[in-house]
Design a protein around this nucleic acid. Sequence first.
RNA 1: GUCCCCAUGGUCUAGAGGCCUAGGACGUCACCCUUUCACGGUGAAAACCCGGGUUCGAAUCCCGGUGGGGACGCCA
Length: 479
Amino acid sequence: MTKPEIRVRIAPSPTGDPHIGTAYIALFNYVFAKKHGGKFIIRIEDTDQTRYRAESEAMILDAVRWFGIEWDEGPDRGGEYGPYKQSERLAHYQKWAKELVSKGHAYYCFCSSERLAGLRKKQTENKLPPGYDRHCRTLEAKEALARVEKGEVHVIRFKVPSSGVTSFEDGIRGKVEFENTKLDDLVILKADGFPTYHLASVVDDHLMKISHVIRGEEWVSSTPKHVLLYQAFGWEPPHFTHLNLLRNPDKSKISKRKHPTSILYYKRKGILPEVLRNFLALMGWNPGGDQEIFSTEEMIEKFSWERFSLGGPVFDLTKLLWMNGQYLKKKSDFEWVQLLRQNVFTEDYLLQLIPLVKERVCAFEEFIDNTSFFFNGDLKYDEAVLPPKGVVAKDASNWLVELLEKLEGLQSWTVEHIKEACENYCKEKEIKTKDLFMTLRIVISGGTVSPPLFETIHVLGKEMTRRRMRLASDSLKKR
RNA sequence: GUCCCCAUGGUCUAGAGGCCUAGGACGUCACCCUUUCACGGUGAAAACCCGGGUUCGAAUCCCGGUGGGGACGCCA
């Protein structure tokens, strides 16, 4: 008998920027797979049509590739168990959801979102744990089917047993138990025919022969639901391992409001991918002893879950920067030239910059001065001049926060969209464009003189813009 | 509110009952090196959440509290 193959996956959902948490989870999945000669798979979980961003999928794949871990199967390279995009696998989920209905493990539910919202509100007000009241669970199967056939809007819910205990063996936490009475009947198939995460991941993990599910701690409390689903299907569940979540400096789950979370930010900043891997590895794991600098190959060689400690690690930019310096010092001068050409002075970036400064530069000696803020990280400027005359610091801080939200919501990062968002915001808030734009100019460029604002923001990119606006609004708030 | 997870300096961590006078790293401070800055070197301040057990002995095991986090969506 040969041992079953180790197969692990990451399942990012294309709803925004490639997330540092994805890189973290990916690293441990990858290392675990390589340690045991297994396969590492990427599956795109695009089952939420409302939050779906077309450009996000390619960005995530590119970011993971940059991060330096290669996948064996995935949406772009296929594999034996494809397709690797959930939106292309809808038939599976519908089939298996109906299977559960016919076996009596799931039922049609016709409750409206309004009813559910009202229910939740009432439960919360009465200090009860929110959850579905199983209103449709007792419907006659025949009657329900008739309503479905009539075209009534419905979802499919899973029938959680009303007694008993569901447990699983976590790879690093040991046995975790939940009482079934504490679980509610989760939706597995939405009204639009798309599956929820719970159904899709269980079906796919089974179909793709995933042996170990290594994911973030936020999934611990839904794992019993997944185990129950496996049981209902009559499938063998995979091994589950839940990693601690990366934290903001205030210990809450890492979030872009409080900490840069985009992988692109770190890339843009000039962090080497091998440093990010080394640093992330240290968030919970270490090779033993005092060694802190190590390659991913070394990590694979020495890896075991026994050396993984729980407790949410705060992601410390300062130490990351120190480590990056350690690596950079060891690079040869020639390697530096290569790295600078590949990461900083790229043809592509220079071509974006030149049109912005061409008219204001008479000789190349002026080029650096005119573009330095495009290459710098966090800027230094006199905060006193940030709020326009007659505006209090706190208001200016709010402008930045609110405008940033608008910019985050943009469907694409184009000059037109940025311009529109900024101008609309001024109109909405009855702010003088001159006031907002000067503040913004200083925040973005560090000075009162710069190339055209929207073009500048566009070229600077979302990650840096976000960082500078957040930093500025935070320090304004404190004034 | 309910359930689940976690708990060593400000931060990342070592520590698997005596090796702990709790080790390393980042950061901080001081000094040295140096025309400056940085690097580098030396040193310092800084932690076992609290209370009960178990044990000859507990940072380490058990229980309870406290604290932090996560989850409770037709989001993942």
